[in-house]
């Protein structure tokens, strides 16, 4: 459905915006390396089923997400390393890993390797933006491209919510994927404050600056 497709393309767009920002400005300043590593972990643990993906649509997106994230990490850790300031990127990711690990172990749909890792990746994704938002809070402002990146990335999961509602009513089974929906709502809530400033400042041509 349209929400799902818009969401996936928003996700892809966010990655292109980030790569464009790094290469255009020859800098990864303002980008949290920790969040990027968490996204890599999210993709690896969620797409363990990559070789068995039957849909070409999903297969292409999975390959794009994994490969582009690897490239972003390479740029941040090697090519543009001097522009990456670890002193600003101080969020304690062990809390996020613990949160996702605990929920994945306590409430997976099934106790299989794939299911536990899948649940871990869903919960981890829901909080993976926190180091990035924390860094933003410390610097107090962001370049326009960085703000566009975070906005597009947040929109992706927000668009999955109407997708789930649409699917609930349009598919005969009326199933609710409780893990994905709960984590998706949590993820969108974490962005709400950012979205508000993005809407009131950046979309009106102003700089992204925290009050």
């Amino acid at each position: 459905n349209i929400f799902r497709v818009l969401g996936d393309f928003s996700h892809l767009a966010s990655i292109f915006i980030l790569l464009h920002k790094i290469q255009q400005l020859k800098s990864c300043s303002g980008i949290s390396f920790k969040s990027q590593v968490l996204y890599m972990l999210v993709y690896i643990t969620r797409y363990l089923d990559l070789p068995w993906t039957s849909s070409p649509y999903n297969f292409i997106f999975k390959v794009l997400f994994i490969s582009s994230e690897l490239y972003i990490i390479y740029l941040m850790a090697r090519a543009y390393k001097p522009t990456n300031d670890p002193n600003l990127d101080t969020f304690h990711v062990e809390f996020l890993l613990g949160f996702a690990g605990l929920l994945a172990l306590l409430f997976p749909y099934k106790y299989t390797i794939l299911e536990v890792f899948w649940a871990f990746s869903i919960w981890l994704e829901s909080v993976a933006i926190l180091p990035q938002l924390f860094m933003l809070q410390r610097t107090g402002e962001a370049e326009a491209m960085t703000a566009h990146y975070i906005a597009a990335l947040g929109m992706y999961r927000a668009l999955y919510i109407p997708n789930w509602i649409y699917r609930y009513f349009s598919e005969p089974t009326h199933k609710v994927d409780t893990i994905a929906v709960t984590a998706g709502i949590l993820q969108t809530i974490l962005y709400s404050d950012f979205f508000w400033i993005y809407y009131t400042k950046v979309m009106r041509g102003e700089k992204f600056k925290l009050p």
Binding site: D49, Y109, E115
Partner: peptide, 10 residues
């Protein structure tokens, strides 16, 4: 089955 449903999203 639920597993198939999970895996059909990204």
């Amino acid at each position: 089955d639920k597993r198939l449903e999970i895996k059909d999203e990204l």
